[in-house]
C-alpha cells in the first residue's frame, strides 16, 4: 500500500465513520429517550442531501445559508413527525418501529416522485475546492473540511449532552421518565428536542456529503442501516460506544474497500457485528452506560 493510498483510506475511513456517527448519535438519543426505533432516520439524511441540492445547486443560494435552511426544515419535519406519529407510542418499541417503516416508504417514494430516481450532482462549493499536500500525499480539501466540521459537531454534541442542563435533562429522561417529570422536566419537550437534534444531525450529514457523493432518493438506505449497526455494536444508549463503533466501522469500510471492494468491506462489517453480539449481546459498551 503506497503512502497516497494509505492516507486516502485513512481520510475515507474517518469521513465515513464521522458521517455514520452523526447519523447514529441522533438515533441512539431518540432510542434512549423515547424508546422509539426509528428506521426512517436515514431518510432525514437523504432529505438533508436534497435540501442542499435544491437550495444550493438548483436555486443558487449560498452554501452555508442553504445548509442552515435545509437542516432547519428537516429538524422541524422531525419534530412534527415525533409529535404527530411517535408520541403515542413512546416507551413502546414495536409499534414505533413499524410506524417508522411506514414513514420510510412514504419519504422515499415521495422524493422519488418529486425528483426522479436519478442521481443529482451537487457542485463543490468554491471554498472547498482543491488539494492539500501533506508530506507527499495529496488530500482533498473538501473531505478534510467535512471531517473537521463533523468532528466539531460530534464534540459539540458530546459537550452538550454531558455538560448542559438540557443535556442533563435528556439523560435523566432516558434513565427514568417518571422520576424526571417529578424534577419538573417535561418529557414531551425533551422528546421533541431529542428528535430535533437527531434529525438536524442526520440532515447535516446529508448536506455535507451531498457535494462529495450524489443525492438520490435511496441514498439514506445504506447509512440508515449502518447507523443501526453502529448503535448496536456500540451499545444502545452509549454515546461513547457510538463514537467508537462508528470509527471501527468507518475504518473497516475505508481500509477494506481498496483491497477487497466495498461490498466485501460491508460484509466484514456485518460479520464483525454478529461476532460481537455473540460475545457481548448488549454491544461493546452497552452495559457500562446503560
Amino acid at each position: 500500500m503506497t503512502l497516497q493510498m494509505f492516507v486516502q483510506s485513512l481520510i475515507n475511513s474517518i469521513l465515513s465513520g464521522g458521517v455514520l456517527i452523526l447519523i447514529a448519535m441522533g438515533l441512539t438519543i431518540i432510542l434512549g429517550i423515547m424508546k422509539v426505533v426509528n428506521f426512517a432516520h436515514g431518510e432525514f439524511y437523504m432529505l438533508g442531501g436534497f435540501g442542499i441540492w435544491w437550495f444550493f445547486a438548483e436555486h443558487g443560494l449560498n452554501f452555508v445559508l442553504a445548509l442552515i435552511l435545509s437542516v432547519t426544515l428537516v429538524g422541524i419535519l422531525g419534530v412534527a413527525i415525533e409529535r404527530g406519529l411517535f408520541k403515542p407510542f413512546r416507551e413502546n418499541a414495536f409499534p414505533s418501529l413499524i410506524i417508522s417503516c411506514g414513514i420510510l416508504l412514504v419519504f422515499r417514494a415521495a422524493t422519488q416522485l418529486s425528483f426522479g430516481l436519478v442521481d443529482h450532482a451537487v457542485p463543490t462549493p468554491e471554498a472547498f475546492k482543491g488539494m492539500i499536500q501533506v508530506s507527499g500525499a495529496f488530500l482533498s480539501k473538501e473531505r478534510l473540511i467535512v471531517i473537521c466540521i463533523t468532528l466539531a459537531l460530534i464534540i459539540g454534541l458530546y459537550v452538550f449532552i454531558k455538560f448542559t442542563k438540557a443535556g442533563l435533562a435528556m439523560r435523566a429522561v432516558s434513565d427514568n421518565p417518571a422520576a424526571a417529570s417529578l424534577q419538573g422536566m417535561s418529557v414531551d419537550r425533551i422528546s421533541s428536542l431529542a428528535f430535533f437534534i437527531g434529525s438536524v444531525l442526520a440532515a447535516t450529514a446529508g448536506c455535507l456529503t451531498g457535494p462529495i457523493f450524489y443525492v438520490s432518493p435511496t441514498m439514506g438506505a445504506e447509512p440508515g442501516l449502518m447507523a443501526f449497526v453502529v448503535i448496536v455494536l456500540g451499545g444502545i444508549g452509549s454515546i461513547t460506544g457510538t463514537v467508537i463503533a462508528g470509527l471501527i466501522i468507518g475504518f473497516i469500510e475505508g481500509f477494506g474497500a481498496i483491497p477487497f471492494g466495498t461490498n466485501y468491506a460491508t460484509v466484514m462489517v456485518y460479520v464483525v457485528l454478529l461476532i460481537t453480539l455473540i460475545f457481548k449481546p448488549m454491544g461493546l459498551l452497552g452495559h457500562a452506560e446503560k
Binding site: 442533563l168 439523560r171 435523566a172 434513565d175 417518571a178 422520576a179 417529578l182 424534577q183
Partner: peptide
C-alpha cells in the same frame, strides 16, 4: 427511582 446512570452530583442537579 434515582437516575442510575447519572452521578450523585448530576442527580442532585436534576
Amino acid at each position: 427511582h434515582v437516575f442510575k446512570n447519572l452521578t450523585v452530583l448530576e442527580n442532585l442537579k436534576t
